[in-house]
Simulated scan of single mutants.
Amino acid sequence: MQESKKTYYIDIASGEITQSPTASTWDFKIEANDEEITQLREEFDYNYNMDVQNFLRAHIPFDEYHNDKENHAQDGSLIRTYEMIYQLGDNEAKKHIESMGILPKQ
C-alpha cells in the first residue's frame, strides 16, 4: 500500500520543512509522503553539517575551493536536494528550478 502524500512548504536557506504555508517564508511547495520527507530532511541535515565543516576549513588559506572534496560533496547534496524538490514540487517549483539551470540536463 502506498503512503498518502501531504503538502509541505520548503525554505532552502533555513532547511525548514513545514506543513503550514503561513508559519514562515517558503520557497517551494511540494507533495510528499513520510519517506520522501525523511530523505529530504537527511539532505538538509547533511548540508548543514557540511556548512559547519566548510566554515571551519575556510580559515585555512591554502585549501582552494575547486580542490576541496568536502565542497564537492556539499554541491552534490545541494543538487540532490533540488532534484527531490523538482520531482515532488508543484508546477511553480519546477519552473523556478528549471530557470535556475542547476540540474544536470537529462
Rank of each mutant, 00 (worst) to 15 (best):
P104T: 08
F28E: 06
K5V: 12
T18N: 10
I17W: 00
E3G: 11
Q106C: 03
M84T: 13
N67S: 10
D75A: 08
P61A: 12
E64H: 05
E42F: 08
S20R: 09
E64Y: 10
Y65D: 15
E36C: 04
I30F: 00
D11P: 02
Q106P: 04
Y8W: 11
T81R: 11
I79N: 05
K95S: 13
S4E: 13
H59G: 11
E16R: 15
L103Y: 03
D34K: 13
D34M: 07
A13Q: 09
Q19D: 14
L88V: 00
N33F: 00
F62I: 14
Y46I: 09
E36H: 05
A58I: 05
A13W: 02
Y82P: 01
N91A: 14
Y65T: 12
L40M: 15
Q2P: 14
L78T: 10
Y82I: 03
A23Q: 12
E70N: 04
T38V: 09
E16M: 13
A32K: 07
I79K: 07
L40G: 05
N71G: 14
Y8N: 05
H96N: 09
L103P: 02
D51Q: 10
S77W: 01
Q87H: 14
N67V: 04
D27R: 04
H72K: 14
E31W: 01
Y9I: 09
E70F: 08
D90I: 01
G15V: 07
I17A: 03
D11K: 14
Y82V: 00
T25Q: 09
D51T: 10
